[in-house]
Every structure is written in C-alpha cells, then in structure tokens.
Simulated scan of single mutants.
Amino acid sequence: MQDEETVLSIEGLQVDIHTAAGVLHAVRGISFDVKRGQTLCLVGESGCGKSMTSLALMGLLPRQAQRTVTRFTFQGQDMRTAGKRQINALRGNKMAMIFQEPMTALNPAYTIGDQLMEHYMLHRQASQAQARERAIELLEKVGIASAGRRLGQYPHQLSGGLRQRVMIAMALMCGPELLIADEPSTALDVTIQAQILRLLADLQAELGIAMILITHDLGIVARIADRVAIMYAGEIVEEGEAASIFGEPHHPYTLGLMRCIPIPGRTEPGGKLGTIPGMVPSLIGPQQGCAFRDRCAYAQPCCSEAIPVQGNPDGQRWRCIHETLEVSA
C-alpha cells in the first residue's frame, strides 16, 4: 500500500532500446518507492542502467528507447496515462533533475540568469522581476556569492563547482517534491565534491525533498543515503536500508563492491583492495538467470534459471539463490 508520504512509486520499470544488433534491455523490471525527505541511492558500476532509469522517470529517454512500467505514481498520480502536457507541467516544476555534467547541461549561448529564470516564469506565471528575485535567492542558498552579478555571466565564465551549484539552484527554482541527482559530483575535485554533497543534504533536510542520488561511489552512499538500491545489468539485485546493506550485504555483487572499499583501521596502507573479475554481460537479446553468475564465486548451476527475490523482516530484499553468504569465500 502506498501512504501519503510516498512521493514516487515504481514497479516493473523496463527500458528497451532498439539497436542494429538487436534489442538492448537497459533497465529490466526494477521497482522502488521514495518517501518525502528520504534519499534513495542507486548504486552500480557504469553501464548498469542508473542514468537510463532517471531519464525514464523524467520522460527524457532517447527516441529509440521504449519504456514499459506496471506502476508509476507520483504523489498518488498515475503517470502511465499522463499526457505530454501533463508531464511537461511536472518536469522542472515538481520533478527536477541535476544532470551529470553541468558544462553540457547548461546552454553556453544563454546567461545563467536566463536559464534559471525561464522555467520559473513558465511554471509559476511569474514576472521577470519575480523570477530574478527567486534566482538570486537560490544562488545565495547554494553558496554563490555576488549572486546578482552571476546572473549576467555565461556558463564558461564559472568554475566546475560553481556550475554544479547553478544546476542545483536551477533544479530547486520551483520547489520540487522529487529531486534526481545523477552523479552530481563526479567531475569535481574532492573538496568541492564534499561541499556539493553537504549542500544537497542540508537543502533536502530544510525543504523535505524526496531525492534519488545516482552514484558509483559507496563512500558517498555511506554518508548520505537512507535507502540503497544496488543495480547490476539493468536490475536491482539488492535493496534496503543503508545500515542493513553496509552491515550485512546478501548479494554477491554487493559484497564484491564492499570489498573494493578501503576500511580505515582494517585496510593496511599499500594493501590490495578487492576486485570483481570479468566484465558486465551484454544486455542485447533474451536475458535469463542471474546476470552476475559468470563473475560470481558463489554461482551454482541453477543460477542460469529464474532467480527468486528474497527478503528479511528489516525490509532488505535481494535477487539471489543464497539466503546468506560466507564472507570468507
């Protein structure tokens, strides 16, 4: 049952892309809920379907991609039957996204002010003066000094960190209920990255926004996530509360990712970190069984068949034949 605090509910989301080699199954039947004030982190290595999931939610898939979904509700509203006008009214207004690379996401031909003010004037029927006031307010909120002067500048006149802050301000202009942040700190140095993540966490706590954070950095996840969904080959292979995922991972892929992280006090300086052998399989053509089985130390012959989804009373779910894993394996 969906409660009033559930902002987004997804069940059976699938994205297929038609290519010359066949149908690429980029996202394969994933399901999750995000509640008000909650941060869900989508985690996985490059190519596992994280960004494609976010584009599917925002209705921004490439033309050759096809989305199918069993349930897709936003604030109780069925988005499967929503028309183009209805989606446009929500996108950038109640549903906002911070894209991966701010230099390409911002239009180099328009000033920062024009890009910040445009959709606020559109969605809120605000005057240019009201939109300018709101833009200055948000730029100051995200920590940009001399905000009024920045409105007249172009993206290339700002540093990477400032451009990312502008993207955050742009996403918050209309006061969204859901914020999707796709690798918001990947292109930034470590110091700026920490500032951006702290800023997102503070803004979310202040505004009560539901947030989906897409990343492959488990260090970020440990600091900011309430719930974690581990994606591999287009599927969510494990999902649950962050403390449960880090404390007792049940899927071999999750465990493999954990072993790749240095642990203060336990990992010796200069010591070897864990690795996951092999490569992500091709998702073109029919898919059957566990996609991780060729890289998994726990694989059994039955892993080539349909894999059950298991769970525990804490709400942790995983797609694997094993109930628990021997960590020493």
Results as ranks from 00 to 15, higher is better:
D294F: 01
F246Q: 11
A171S: 15
E45P: 11
I87Q: 13
A82Q: 07
I136H: 06
A109R: 11
A194H: 09
T215W: 04
M279D: 15
F72M: 13
L178S: 00
Q287G: 12
C41P: 12
V43L: 14
I10W: 01
F72K: 10
Q38A: 10
E268C: 01
G37F: 09
Q153F: 00
A291Q: 12
R124M: 11
V7L: 10
A169Y: 08
L199R: 08
Q310R: 15
A329M: 10
V237Q: 09
Q2D: 10
Q66D: 03
R91G: 04
V228G: 09
E206G: 03
T215F: 07
Q316Y: 00
A20K: 13
P301N: 04
I180C: 10
L57E: 11
E239D: 05
L55G: 07
D78C: 09
C41Y: 03
D16V: 06
E183F: 02
Q153Y: 00
I112N: 08
R165D: 09
L199W: 01
L40K: 06
I30L: 15
V43H: 07
V34F: 05
I245C: 06
L138F: 02
C48G: 05
N88R: 15
R134W: 00
M231N: 02
V228K: 03
V237F: 02
C303A: 12
G175H: 06
G37D: 06
A210V: 01
Q195S: 10
R67I: 04
S31H: 10
G29E: 06
V309T: 15
L90Y: 05
Y120N: 03
M211F: 01
G219R: 13
A169M: 11
D16C: 08
I307C: 12
Q77S: 14
V327Q: 13
M231P: 05
A329H: 15
D294S: 12
R63N: 12
P176G: 07
G219K: 06
I136N: 00
H156D: 04
A229G: 14
V166S: 04
R198N: 15
S127Y: 06
I284L: 12
L200I: 13
F292D: 10
M173V: 11
Q195H: 08
M258A: 11
E183K: 04
I245H: 02
Y298M: 09
D294P: 02
I17M: 14
D3L: 01
G44L: 11
T324A: 14
I196W: 07
Y232V: 02
T68N: 07
